Computed example of a mutant assay.
Amino acid sequence: MHRWQPELGLIQETLLLTLYARALDATQPSPILGDTLSADLADKIDYDFPRLKVKPNLIATTALRAKKLDDVVRAYTTAHPGCVVLDLGCGLDTRMSRCDPPPSVDWYDIDFPEVVNLRSECLPGPSHLVGADLTTSGWLAAIPGDRPAMIVAEGLLPFMPGDSFQTMTRELAGHFPSGELALNGYTRFAAWAMKYHPTIKALGIKAAQGFDDPREPESWGAGLELIEEQILTRAPEVDRFPQPLRALTRLTARSTALSRQGARILRYRF
């Protein structure tokens, strides 16, 4: 069996972390996401995954946030079958396969050029691949701007320096006539604390971007309006978390302030 040997920078290497977490979830007796395609893909990549020190809480929260973002995408593409979907910082995510959008949807997977090159080799599919540094401008020229857009940014916010995420959001909202933006929102503390997490520390990455108030993006000048904040500690899928993580998560769910330091899904319309 051929095995791919990815040659990636530190930031790009985080795609292997989330891939491995989804793969491990798929092997659980009661998986949350059940992404068997990610499990198959991880088996075909020549990489020392154990060095990432992925713990049960990361497996569970990664799978849960992916599942909730998938639900948002499915709902939007069902309501807008002529839309475009942008998966920003897509890595080796299999979201298009999981969501199975209508054939009339144009799906764009966007990441660094070296990432999309790897993706085209080991995860071919019907999506349009766009190689771009999202902190720069100009890459949107490759994407039609005359249709509604569903924009997903999973795990992207903490790794974009300065105000580049806000700038990108303004450009996206200005490019399309309407749409939604869905992301997993990190508080400032959660983003700061990421660099001390064993998995992130193992890669040598320092993450720092986040915001506390879910309505803060409404002030970015992008015309965003908050639709929903999902506190994932209160999701029914927590019943599938392993113990003692399940009990701890249920305890945390009693406090909105504490729950926001974990995983939450934010949806905005523009």
Score class of each variant (00 low, 15 high):
109 D>M: 14
107 W>C: 01
84 V>L: 06
130 V>C: 09
102 P>I: 09
128 H>T: 04
127 S>K: 09
128 H>I: 06
84 V>R: 15
101 P>S: 13
92 L>F: 14
118 L>R: 02
100 D>V: 08
106 D>G: 01
87 D>G: 09
118 L>Y: 13
91 G>K: 03
132 A>K: 08
101 P>V: 03
111 D>R: 01
120 S>L: 11
83 C>T: 08
71 D>S: 05
122 C>I: 15
78 T>S: 07
98 R>F: 02
116 V>R: 00
125 G>D: 06
126 P>G: 05
120 S>K: 05
127 S>V: 12
107 W>I: 01
78 T>R: 07
119 R>Y: 15
115 V>K: 00
73 V>Q: 03
81 P>F: 07
108 Y>C: 10
70 D>A: 05
119 R>T: 02
69 L>D: 05
73 V>K: 03
134 L>P: 13
71 D>G: 10
71 D>T: 12
109 D>W: 12
96 M>A: 13
94 T>S: 14
113 P>I: 12
82 G>M: 12
71 D>K: 11
103 P>R: 10
129 L>V: 11
103 P>H: 05
95 R>T: 15
119 R>Q: 09
106 D>A: 06
103 P>G: 14
75 A>F: 07
97 S>P: 03
108 Y>T: 10
104 S>G: 14
102 P>A: 15
102 P>K: 12
133 D>M: 06
103 P>K: 08
132 A>N: 11
100 D>F: 09
86 L>Y: 03
110 I>G: 02
76 Y>E: 11
123 L>D: 01
129 L>T: 06
